[in-house]
Simulated scan of single mutants.
Amino acid sequence: MRIYRAKNYQELSRKAANIISAQIIIKPNCVLGLATGSSPIGTYRQLTEWYEKGDLDFREVKTVNLDEYVGLSGTDHQSYRYFMNDNLFNHVNIDRQNTNVPNGKAADLQAECKRYNELIRSLGGIDMQLLGIGRNGHIGFNEPEEAFEKETHIVNLTDSTIEANARLFDNIADVPGQAITMGIKSIMQAKRILLIASGKDKADAIQKTLFGPVSPKVPASILQIHQNLTVVADDDALSECGLGSEGMIVC
Rank of each mutant, 00 (worst) to 15 (best):
166 A>K: 01
201 D>G: 05
159 D>N: 11
196 I>F: 12
216 P>A: 09
160 S>Q: 09
149 E>K: 10
163 E>C: 10
205 A>P: 03
189 Q>H: 12
214 V>N: 09
216 P>R: 08
187 I>E: 04
186 S>K: 00
151 E>M: 05
219 P>K: 00
171 N>M: 03
146 E>S: 08
221 S>E: 09
207 Q>S: 13
195 L>E: 00
193 I>K: 02
182 M>H: 01
149 E>F: 10
172 I>N: 09
196 I>P: 07
162 I>R: 13
164 A>Q: 13
170 D>W: 09
198 S>T: 09
148 F>W: 04
147 A>F: 13
184 I>S: 04
168 L>Q: 15
184 I>D: 01
164 A>V: 07
186 S>I: 00
168 L>H: 14
185 K>N: 10
162 I>T: 08
159 D>Q: 14
176 P>Y: 06
175 V>N: 03
187 I>R: 03
221 S>N: 14
152 T>R: 07
201 D>V: 07
148 F>E: 06
199 G>F: 01
157 L>G: 07
224 Q>C: 09
210 L>W: 03
204 D>P: 09
191 K>H: 05
178 Q>W: 04
167 R>G: 15
187 I>M: 05
207 Q>W: 12
151 E>S: 04
180 I>E: 10
164 A>C: 10
169 F>V: 12
221 S>W: 12
203 A>S: 08
208 K>Q: 13
210 L>S: 02
167 R>E: 15
195 L>F: 00
155 V>Q: 14
190 A>P: 02
169 F>Y: 15
224 Q>H: 04
175 V>P: 02
216 P>Q: 03
182 M>T: 05
217 K>G: 09
220 A>V: 01
180 I>N: 07
225 I>G: 12
160 S>H: 07
167 R>Q: 15
176 P>V: 07
163 E>H: 11
209 T>L: 00
173 A>N: 14
160 S>I: 11
172 I>A: 08
167 R>T: 14
220 A>L: 00
157 L>C: 06
173 A>M: 13
218 V>A: 05
153 H>A: 13
166 A>H: 04
164 A>L: 12
213 P>S: 15
214 V>C: 06
221 S>D: 10
148 F>L: 03
157 L>P: 05
169 F>L: 08
194 L>M: 03
150 K>M: 12
199 G>D: 02
171 N>I: 01
177 G>E: 14
191 K>D: 06
166 A>M: 01
168 L>G: 14
166 A>F: 06
161 T>H: 11
201 D>S: 13
191 K>W: 04
200 K>A: 11
194 L>W: 05
166 A>P: 07
205 A>H: 00
154 I>Q: 14
186 S>R: 00
202 K>E: 02
152 T>H: 08
195 L>T: 01
152 T>V: 07
191 K>V: 02
193 I>S: 02
212 G>W: 03
217 K>P: 02
177 G>Y: 14
174 D>V: 07
221 S>P: 13
187 I>N: 03
182 M>V: 02
203 A>D: 01
157 L>W: 08
201 D>T: 13
188 M>A: 04
153 H>Q: 11
224 Q>F: 08
145 E>W: 13
221 S>M: 08
213 P>N: 04
163 E>F: 11
188 M>C: 05
177 G>Q: 14
195 L>G: 02
163 E>T: 13
225 I>A: 15
178 Q>F: 13
149 E>T: 12
155 V>H: 11
